[in-house]
Design a binder for these strands. Structure first.
Lengths: 192, 192
DNA sequence: TCTAAAGTGGAGTGATCACTCCGTTACAAA
DNA sequence: TTTGTAACGGAGTGATCACTCCACTTTAGA
């Protein structure tokens, strides 16, 4: 009846696989073979499937881990002196990390986002909600924006393609436009 | 030496394949098998590969055809009485068509976008450029925005995921924020 | 130290795909 | 109508994957 303690090698391998999968997915997209992930992690392919029963489960786990770390970053910013600044820092940070990553959209498609963004269960939506309402109280960001809209916008921006050599510059300009759209508008919301 | 006239059935099949491929890709994503495309077009798989030597070439052709039609729509709006309104109409139309489509990002990845967006060669960037500069002269849209940025923004918005049942509503809100960011800002560009 | 059980590695399996090949068919030109 | 040829269809090919299975190894607890 008493559960046995988990084996040390199993825990180690699980986190190795997660870390290797993130690296490989970012570099080469989620279409890489599971065997490539196993090789990068230094384990057998059987071990990968033992910890993550399907490839989709592995992709989702990698993505949730990424969201979890964003949640930690957001949480640290909740205590910042200038809430109006903190949210721009966070959004800029998300855009930076997401920039140029291949196949994040795949990861989203494979992830139950509703779960991952439920405030009651996850740190990210909770902390981002705090950042947002503080920024709104201070008037740094328009009052009619929701967390879901912020997430959707950041997701969208992360998909800005590399149209040319100055892909990074283009992304920066696009981000600036989106940020300006998030600021309070004189005369309220003008687009319906 | 004199080129023979192209066969009628070949022309007909080519456009059938293109149309069927667009339908199937939109409904089920570009990962569907080429055989499924052939079946939907009512031709053999050999015929598909005769007209489009690789699957990537087929995806690119479908996508360029979509861009071409956007170019036609933009061109018709160039003559509109209210240029400040015309560009919102066009951008809204693009967002509407792109909404909920799976795998447009794949199509972009497979397409040589530089070519597709070269004004000298394609109608879309030419017409969109006209729409944009007219709207800017009228003060409807900020003067520092470029065509590349507009395209990038529309691409980005088309990737807004269906977070929940009200995915359409979310997309509309996101689009409104982006549109507001595109309007002239008092005090100039505030985000750097 | 001993041992039951949890975990591991990687060859093997079946399914799926993109793409090819070639006997047959339909068309354009004469 | 005839004929040369471009185009067609679809079975076949080889490669690639996700996932399974099981003989072997490592660990936790006694």
């Amino acid at each position: 009846m008493t559960a046995r303690a988990p084996r040390a090698d199993a825990l180690r391998n699980r986190s190795r696989v997660l870390a290797a999968a993130e690296q490989v997915f970012v570099a080469r997209g989620t279409a890489v073979s599971t065997e490539a992930v196993a090789r990068a992690a230094g384990v057998g392919i059987g071990t990968v499937f033992r910890h993550f029963p399907t490839k989709a489960a592995l992709i989702e786990a990698v993505f949730r881990e990424r969201l979890r770390r964003f949640g930690e970053e957001a949480d640290q910013l909740v205590g910042a002196e200038d809430p109006g600044e903190a949210i721009w820092v966070f959004l800029g940070r998300v855009a930076e990390v997401a920039a140029g990553k291949q196949d994040w959209a795949d990861a989203f498609a494979a992830t139950n986002l509703r779960d991952a963004l439920t405030p009651a269960r996850e740190q990210l939506p909770r902390a981002l909600g705090s950042l947002l309402s503080r920024a709104q109280e201070q008037g740094a960001i328009r009052s009619d924006v929701t967390v879901a809209e912020l997430v959707a916008l950041m997701l969208a921006v992360s998909r800005v393609p590399e149209l040319d050599a100055e892909g990074a510059a283009l992304r920066a300009r696009v981000l600036a436009i989106v940020f300006d759209g998030l600021r309070p508008q004189q005369g309220g919301l003008r687009s319906q």
